[in-house]
Design a binder for these strands. Structure first.
Length: 637
DNA sequence: GGTCTCTTAAACACGC
DNA sequence: CGCGTGTTTAAGAGAC
């Protein structure tokens, strides 16, 4: 039902490693469907006059915006400084080489992705619900004001280039290319400007940002773009150079019009200019697109602010002084409104134990809503499947890992619906599947089914992962094949499984090499990742704001660390095969707590005695402890 | 740089 | 012969 439609939808947006082509195909393939839903929207939509009103407002807003941009509010000097740097990397350049949708989804923690899904779903729902004219109009007005104010602020500080689109595009790049692309396609192409406006509305509403829109991180987007370039791949650098200005236009790159959703081919600048004037003149559509982009920008800026704050907290927690405010950091302080963002200094006086990031985070939008609606509307797809973007293991001390059970329990819906590769090894998954079964044994086929049932990701490329599953079953001694009456079943030899662990370093996370590099490049990782992270700050916040996860700083670890079953140790030691199937939510939340601190100990010396200590806070009978890993099972369903 | 782990691909065997 | 299952080898890559 839901799941199916979800996965199907996801599948319809195949993405290749090549971001661009994936985007294209996405629009092509999904076009029909999208159109369909659009139709619904149209149907439910308002009276004509309202429509006109909206359009007029949008147009007006955009005009004002453009006028401001054109009226030289920004100082030429500053602009020059920014301009070259900021020449946006085209999506075409960035997507394929720096980050593919898959990569993006992979660097993000499930919660983040989940939140993103929710966000998009919210957007879709918004569309489907169609009417909210009053609220919408109010928002329009508010948006106008805020946007103007925002632009003015940025311009005053010389942080915004003359071409508004430059900033926009920068941010655009910070978002999942495919998402944006789709959004833009919808807005620019088939959709009427009214729909575009609704898109904007959806964006806005989905973020609960209405009351925080006053926060405009200075030039965040600019920096993001800048760093994306800096850390970018080979061919982007050129665009940083001066030669730029001569033949470049923020909306033109690689022979393509970079107007969101356009991609028209233009051989030269002249042709591009012509195209720009013809196709993207100041009309309703362009205006609507512009407005959407504004929303995107605002959204991202807010998210960046939040993410920045979190970073500060993280660093504070790790006692890492935000050394030199690298460009990446700078924008962090941009909090023009003190309410939401604090400066590094104020927020976390050095060394201070500071509160968990989220604590300071005022907004906690998603996650409580209809949690994880079918992610159908989303396309986190990642396919690609080419090895290019294959999974990459990321080193992560086990102590920072989250047990597979917890992870799955937390994000079961997410994995079920989103085509996201779970951050577990095959062995972990197989083991989990087996232990989760009533008899703790499964046939190969049942294992297959478990995979497909639990993970949208494993609903495709079956040959590949099934082969991997078989391979793992055979390879690892921890999986024992038992001849059964009706065939062979696989069981788990926990002892063996644990033996397998010692050489810590199992966390398997799927990150692209490029991203990993970016991430590890110290604070510099701000570039690309920052972009995406910022774009998705909201999502992670949602997790952080989850009470059960906030109780300990360690909870932070759950966010991005690739996991493997750390807790398995615990389980293993105690588990003698019994496993109580159900667990109350309380117990569950307990479980979450329990794993945090303890894991470290148990990792290194996993004596049983320690386990007792580990679970100290909750006197769980061994059986229940055993559940730690298994319980999620129940939650999964 | 060597080793370990994991993933993926592929060849091969075996039984139905 | 085709298919599912199971085993094994090898290559590539990240982490330590």
């Amino acid at each position: 039902m839901m799941v199916e439609s979800a996965s199907e939808t996801i599948r319809t947006t195949p993405s290749n490693q090549n971001g661009i082509s994936s985007l294209s195909s996405q629009s092509d393939g999904g076009g029909g469907r999208e159109g369909g839903s659009k139709g619904d929207t149209n149907g439910e939509i308002s009276p004509v006059d309202l429509l006109h009103l909206q359009q007029q407002q949008a147009l007006q807003a955009a005009r004002q915006f453009l006028l401001q941009q054109a009226s030289g509010l920004n100082s030429p000097g500053n602009e020059l400084k920014q301009s070259p740097v900021q020449v946006p990397v085209s999506m075409a350049m960035m997507s394929p080489q720096m980050i593919t949708p898959q990569q993006m989804q992979q660097i993000l923690s499930p919660p983040q992705l989940q939140a993103l899904l929710q966000q998009q779903q919210a957007l879709m729902l918004q569309q489907q619900l169609g009417t909210k004219q009053l609220a919408f109009q109010q928002q329009l007005i508010q948006m106008q004001q805020l946007q103007q104010q925002h632009i003015l602020n940025l311009q005053r500080q010389g942080l915004v280039p003359l071409q508004p689109t430059a900033t926009m595009q920068s941010l655009q790049q910070a978002m999942c290319p495919s998402d944006l692309q789709q959004l833009w396609k919808e807005v620019s192409g088939v959709q009427s400007s009214e729909e575009a406006l609704k898109q904007a509305e959806g964006l806005d509403l989905s973020t609960n940002s209405s009351n925080s829109t006053s926060v405009f991180p200075k030039a965040a987007s600019t920096h993001i773009a800048l760093h994306s370039l800096a850390n970018g791949q080979s061919h982007t650098p050129k665009r940083d150079s001066h030669e730029e200005h001569a033949s470049s236009h923020p909306l033109y790159g690689h022979g393509e019009c970079k107007w969101p959703g356009c991609e028209a081919l233009c051989e030269d600048m002249g042709q591009f200019i012509k195209h720009l004037n013809n196709e993207h003149a100041l009309d309703d559509r362009s205006t609507a697109q512009c407005r959407v982009q504004m929303q995107v920008v605002q959204q991202l800026e807010i998210q960046l602010a939040k993410e920045s704050e979190r970073l500060q907290a993280m660093m504070a927690h790790l006692h890492m002084r935000p050394s030199e405010p690298k460009p990446f950091n700078q924008p962090l302080n941009l909090a023009s409104s003190g309410s939401l963002i604090k400066r590094d200094s104020e927020a976390y006086p050095e060394g201070l134990p500071h509160p968990p990031t989220s604590a300071a985070t005022p907004i906690t939008p998603l996650r409580q809503g209809p949690s994880v609606i079918s992610s159908s509307s989303l396309h986190t797809h990642s396919h690609s499947h080419t090895h290019g973007v294959g999974p990459i293991r990321r080193r992560n001390s086990d102590k920072y890992c989250t047990p597979i059970a917890s992870e799955l329990a937390q994000n079961c819906e997410f994995y079920k619906n989103a085509d996201v590769r779970p951050p577990f090894t095959y062995a972990s998954l197989i083991r989990h599947a087996i232990l989760e079964s009533p008899d703790r044994q499964l046939t190969l086929n049942e294992i297959y089914n478990w995979f497909t049932r639990k993970f949208a990701y494993f609903r495709r490329n079956t040959a590949t992962w099934k082969n991997a599953v078989r391979h793992n079953l055979s390879l690892h001694k921890c999986f024992v094949r038992v001849e059964n009456v009706k065939g062979a079943v696989w069981t788990v030899d926990e002892v063996e499984y644990q033996k397998r662990r010692p050489p810590k370093m199992t966390g398997r996370c799927v990150l692209s090499p490029t991203l990993v590099k970016n991430m590890i490049s110290g604070l510099g990782f701000g570039s690309l990742n920052a972009s995406y992270q910022a774009a998705l700050a909201e999502s992670s916040l949602s997790l952080l704001n989850s009470p059960s996860l906030l109780t300990s700083p360690a909870s932070l670890n759950m966010l991005h660390v690739g996991h493997d079953d750390v807790s398995s140790t615990v389980e293993q030691v105690n588990s003698n095969g019994s496993c109580s199937p159900t667990l109350s939510p309380q117990q569950y939340s307990h479980q979450v707590h329990v794993k945090e601190e303890p894991t470290e100990l148990e990792e290194d010396s996993r004596p049983v005695s320690l386990l007792a200590g580990v679970t100290h806070s909750l006197p769980l009978p061994s059986d229940e402890r055993d559940l730690e890993e298994d319980l999620p099972t129940e939650e999964l369903e």
